[in-house]
């Protein structure tokens, strides 16, 4: 049976997952969406995996949960960064309420001219 500490960790993780997905629906452009969703869902899923690890302790299952957690922690920001860069280079406009865009000059020049 699941004990108290894993239950608390998993509940908090589930809440963050849900909040991240609400952000994915509510926020105005792809950059803000990627931002909110990546942060919240990464931490949420890591907390769920950590809850599983505390439930099973030092065993094959717990070890796999910890490895999976580290793996998500390293890869999720890289994936978000790659998608956002691709979005910018494919010409997705920023939300009209955006205040500054320092990236425009660099992104529009060809890579070999840098």
């Amino acid at each position: 049976m699941t004990s108290l500490l894993p239950k608390v960790l998993i509940t908090v993780g589930l809440l963050f997952d849900l909040l991240g997905c609400i952000g994915l629906v509510r926020l105005p452009d792809v950059y803000n969406r990627a931002q909110a969703a990546t942060k919240c869902v990464t931490l949420g899923t890591c907390l769920i995996l950590f809850g599983v690890a505390t439930q099973f302790g030092v065993s094959a299952l717990g070890m796999k949960a910890v490895l999976c957690m580290l793996f998500i922690l390293f890869t999720s920001p890289v994936g978000a960064h790659a998608i956002v860069r691709g979005a910018y280079k494919s010409g997705v406009k920023m939300w009209e309420g955006s205040v500054v865009d320092a990236y425009r000059d660099v992104a529009t020049t060809k890579p070999e001219e840098r």
Binding site: S98, V100, D101
Partner: peptide, 13 residues
């Protein structure tokens, strides 16, 4: 920021 009804964001690069 997500829950707040007005979404207080000022995005930029």
């Amino acid at each position: 920021r997500v829950i707040h009804p007005d979404m207080p964001i000022r995005p930029g690069i």
